[in-house]
Amino acid sequence: MAVVTRVIPCLDVAEGRVVKGVNFQNLRDAGNPVELARRYYEQGADELTFLDVTATVDNRATTYEMVTATAEQVFIPLTVGGGVRSAEDVSRLLASGADKVGVNSAAIARPGLVDEIADRFGNQVLVLSLDIMRDPAQPSGFAVTTHGGRRNAGIDALAWAAEAVERGAGELLVNSIDADGTTEGFDIELLRDVRAIAQVPVIASGGAGRLEHFAPAVRAGADAVLAASVFHSGTFSIGQVKQALAQDGIEVRS
């Protein structure tokens, strides 16, 4: 009896539509988020994540509407991230139907935001999103980035992850900027290093391209695996990922 590996499709959204390119700069429309969310729910997704990739510049009303419409139809946890800057933003997303909220750049700019959110809503709502790149200048060899991986924040990624957990992050979404879009597999070394310092659940993200990529991420210590384009493009289904994990001896929800 144990909690099993979660498989999480991530829907990158902009202005109420799903987008996901081969990298963050090249966005390609891939459908209606509410319909896609329902399809993934029916396929057996264990959670859903919406990442509002243009939220920092856009009006967010469409995001709240999309979250509400989704929460009415899918009865699994829903995480929403992108452009979250204050406890008030979190409050609005939770009220719209989100169960967890992803926080990224704003927490790097002002770490106290993590404490504020955790104190008010509990650490279980707070997913700290980390866009991480390899950087020999950092003690751990990994730096945290902002602006969807375009800007190196010059901060050691593992030190920041440890600090954020201490402040109240309930989960870490570890996205490798180097691996993202390559479809060559997760950054296993990064996942192992994060696992070694984190006592909260870890979600592996970035680089999934083949079914055999998922099991090594779990063995490296990930509690959940997240992917976007491989699901949206139909390269494989949630069920196929679960089957591949199960064949590798990793327990999943059937």
């Binding site: 009896m1 144990a2 909690v3 099993v4 979660r6 264990d46 650490n123 279980q124 309930g170 989960e171 006592q199 909260v200 659940p201 509690d223 959940a224 929800r253």
Partner: peptide, 12 residues
């Protein structure tokens, strides 16, 4: 070792 207990578990 890992908290919160987050995810899908069986119940006896």
């Amino acid at each position: 070792p890992v908290l919160p207990h987050m995810g899908w578990n069986t119940v006896s």
